[in-house]
């Protein structure tokens, strides 16, 4: 039997693990930019804000087998904020689900890869997403399927914070608590921005931890760019038996690309050679500074 990714990982110290994941996250951020360069433009802000979460999931937490993408016992991941396809696809490539060169076709005619992931075309993608407010219901269905099938897999769902304005999210929030589905773990990428402006300038959900607790979830709030906190929350979930877990991850939209950080206008942006050069310089600079610290 081939090794199960993350489950059969060689032993390492916590410091080694964090160093590995942080450097992997930097690489993934670089791949976001080069992938979007091939596409010409794309969702920079919301891909960067969840890059640490995606890295922790795919390189530490999720149990899966890239040689068998449909392995029935794998953990499921639903990218409910489907517009962050530009971070999911590079992560899947780096895990070995498909050759990373394929990402050069992103958004091009008949490419498997586009702004929003298609599960029928992308090996390793567990669900097609794009329209917001769908993923939590799907993840809940997956988590309940594990119960029906007496399997041990978990379902992870990553939502954006703007997405919480969709009423359907709260239908699923209610049902997940009712059915006591503790193998459902949701994460909110709380980057505070939508496509038009800051979420504070729109009717939007706030007091998130209180809201989800009131809906019957077990909630932990973390810094979504502190790899230690991200990994701990994802590995320690479920936080309580018999309750779905919610991780509210405070993040910065565009994180890692200084000129794109905390700006609505980098939600979707043209990515040309100049943008890529400046992004990669910033990301590599930050990475070498971190390495020196270590």
């Amino acid at each position: 039997m081939p090794p199960i990714l993350n489950q059969d990982r060689p032993k390492e110290s916590r410091a080694e693990m964090l160093a590995r994941l942080e450097s992997q996250a930097s690489l993934i951020r670089q791949r976001i930019m080069t992938t979007l360069q091939a596409a010409g433009s794309g969702h920079v802000g919301g891909s960067m804000s969840c890059a640490d979460i995606i890295t922790a999931l795919y390189f530490q937490v999720l149990r899966m087998d890239p040689s068998d993408p449909r392995w029935p016992d794998r953990d499921r991941f639903v990218l409910s904020k489907g517009h962050a396809s530009a971070v999911l696809c590079p992560a899947l490539a780096e895990c070995g689900f498909f050759p990373r060169e394929l990402l050069d076709t992103f958004n091009q005619l008949d490419s498997p890869f586009s702004m929003h992931p298609d599960m029928l075309k992308i090996p390793g993608a567990d669900m097609s997403t794009g329209s917001l407010g769908h993923g939590l219901a799907i993840g809940l269905g997956m988590a309940m399927a594990a119960r029906v099938q007496k399997r041990l897999f978990r379902a992870f769902v990553l939502m954006g914070d703007g997405e919480l304005s969709e009423g359907s999210v709260w239908e699923s929030a209610m049902a997940a608590a009712f059915f006591k589905v503790d193998n459902l773990i949701a994460i909110i990428d709380r980057n505070q921005f939508g496509s038009d402006c800051a979420l504070s300038d729109l009717p939007s959900a706030n007091a998130l931890a209180e809201k989800w607790r009131a809906f019957g979830w077990s909630v932990r709030e973390i810094d979504g760019h502190d790899m230690g906190q991200v990994v701990d929350a994802l590995t320690e979930a479920p936080f309580e038996t018999g309750r779905p877990s919610m991780i509210v991850a405070n993040t910065v939209k565009g994180k890692g690309v200084p000129f794109a950080e905390a700006r609505f206008d980098w939600h979707y942006h043209v990515v040309d050679q100049d943008v890529v050069d400046r992004s990669l310089a910033a990301l590599r600079g930050a990475e070498s500074a971190k390495e020196e610290q270590r």
């Binding site: 029935p72 499921r76 639903v78 599960m119 567990d126 669900m127 407010g133 769908h134 939590l136 219901a137 799907i138 993840g139 809940l140 269905g141 997956m142 988590a143 309940m144 399927a145 594990a146 119960r147 029906v148 099938q149 379902a155 009423g167 359907s168 239908e171 699923s172 209610m174 049902a175 009712f178 059915f179």
Partner: peptide
Amino acid sequence: PDRGFNIGIAEQNLIGMAAGMASCGL
């Protein structure tokens, strides 16, 4: 009771959950 669920008045969640279950082989 292990395979029959009443999920409340929430048709969007109804179909989304069913899709999640179907994706797992049910």
